[in-house]
Design a protein around this nucleic acid. Sequence first.
DNA 1: CTGAAAGCGCTTACAG
DNA 2: CTGAAAGCGCTTACAG
Lengths: 339, 339
Amino acid sequence: MDKRITLKELAKLLNVSISTVSKALNDSPEISVQTVQRVKELAKLNHYVPNASAVNLKTQRTQTIGVIVPEILSHFFAEALHGIETKASEMGYRIIICISNESMNKEAESIKTLVNGQVDGLIMSLSKETQASMRMDHLEILKNNNIPLVLFDRILSQVNCDKISINDSLQTKNAILELYASGCKKIAYFSGIQDTSVDNERKKGYFEAIKNLRLEEFIVCFDRKNFPDEKLLHFMRYEKIDAVLASDELGAILVMKSALNAGFKIPEDLSVIGFTNGIMSEHFRPSLSTVDQHAEKQGKLALGILIERIEGKLSKDPKEYKIETSIIHRNSTRKGILN
Amino acid sequence: MDKRITLKELAKLLNVSISTVSKALNDSPEISVQTVQRVKELAKLNHYVPNASAVNLKTQRTQTIGVIVPEILSHFFAEALHGIETKASEMGYRIIICISNESMNKEAESIKTLVNGQVDGLIMSLSKETQASMRMDHLEILKNNNIPLVLFDRILSQVNCDKISINDSLQTKNAILELYASGCKKIAYFSGIQDTSVDNERKKGYFEAIKNLRLEEFIVCFDRKNFPDEKLLHFMRYEKIDAVLASDELGAILVMKSALNAGFKIPEDLSVIGFTNGIMSEHFRPSLSTVDQHAEKQGKLALGILIERIEGKLSKDPKEYKIETSIIHRNSTRKGILN
DNA sequence: CTGAAAGCGCTTACAG
DNA sequence: CTGAAAGCGCTTACAG
């Protein structure tokens, strides 16, 4: 068998009309049980599978969701994708994945190719470039084509669509509070994800908490490929920094490595908390206390909301959903009065 | 604008036929430059995008590749996916990703939903279940529907298709040789991926190398969620094991943690090499020497081969490609005469 | 250079 | 209960 068998061919073989075959295969009550059975048998025998393009064209639905993420190599997005795929598969949807590589251009490209009736809806976490420029014109085309969008984690509040995220500023405040409660007095925030909505929220939370506690502010922005060891060590030696909150897992690990290599002890000399709970957090020595971002949960929720939106089960106005989160205490922090 | 504009509507607005619009948009030389220009302008103005389902139905091509992987959370598959997506996007293809979760059933399901004219070709890395049972009947449907398949990493030699992998047995031998050259005399292989083709190849290589060197064999199979610390420590204390080759990054990290926590020194008391070069290898203390599996390269190659196959640029017979790899020396191994 | 027509493989109102 | 027909939105041989 070299070519897929079609309804037409099945109809010929069975000596009935195409309509009858189609209805039988779709369990239409119009068709007699015997016919249904005959049709299904032959279909099975011939490995009949309906042509998706034809069905989609006719029904104007694809049962496919597009997903555009900035990258896939960090644990957060891999886990989110995992959640999205799992839930999609449960609900009978497929997912098409595009990676923007933090580029707005690539993001726009991907949207363009997906908008053409390829997907019923779109889930996105925005590229840094998009978030930094706050431009959203490349998202307009979605509106034009009536394709629902759900934004998660890296969101843009100006965009009118459903949004999923954690309460980053609140979580940051909580983390600072816990560090303070465990005895830390000079708490720095290290950011490796500048220009993202997430980072802005965290900085906001950091400043508020620090102000409330009447502490000193220390903010360091770094590039993952070029961690500023000297800066950290300088802060520790001369400013007596005794705690770091890092914007992501790798950042936190780099902070710990740097301090440990210089002979400092963790958590005695330096307490560290990182955002995002990945595999390194659990296995590093010492293990890293983290703010769990529930990537999988965010992914699943995003998918769920999107499907409801597609199927028209949601009221008109899009909503912003905040996911509850919590701090996982491991060995990079001291025991405080809170735990 | 609520509904997508179609060729028909453009034609009406322009007072020309649908054929003319279609040809103009596709830069057919049949159409006059002025017409082409007029058409394109109006199309742009109206944000026209051709309906993918219609085009696919007509052309019998989708420019979409299906990818089925066992999981996405380990670095190897995330990186492979990254490679596949990057290359696909370069070549103007989209990818639909399904995760089998190591289940043959889910794998079969995914194949079934993708086979229906949804994709032009398929890239797979097989689930453990499929590899353990060596069953391949669920892959038959691909042949029936004339959909080319490329297998990577977790391959099954009986399947008649293009295959990409690294030479696992050879790499294992090399790793053992290097450990031996650095002074190790009792070398164990720890496997956390039993029943995979990859693991079988490595065991083969392990046995051969050990035999050639006239050493003793130590093989330990473990479950990632339940690492057998006692067994490792027993081997170290009473059998004087002085080196471990682990089947994957996490396994190697668990070995190191276990030994370090028991007070052993790495690499002085125990040398460790892990397969797969992930993010933990670089950042753990001590950093882990690894056999790089070139996940991204495997992914890119798989995609490249598949497209050539789809576009009929490859000779009839499928081939098996072996990717060159190498050992990355870090601090979990001693310096030997080889490096 | 332009257009009418057939057809890709389906679904579904409508008629019988 | 079954079937003929229209149509989803395109492409492309063919005619003019």
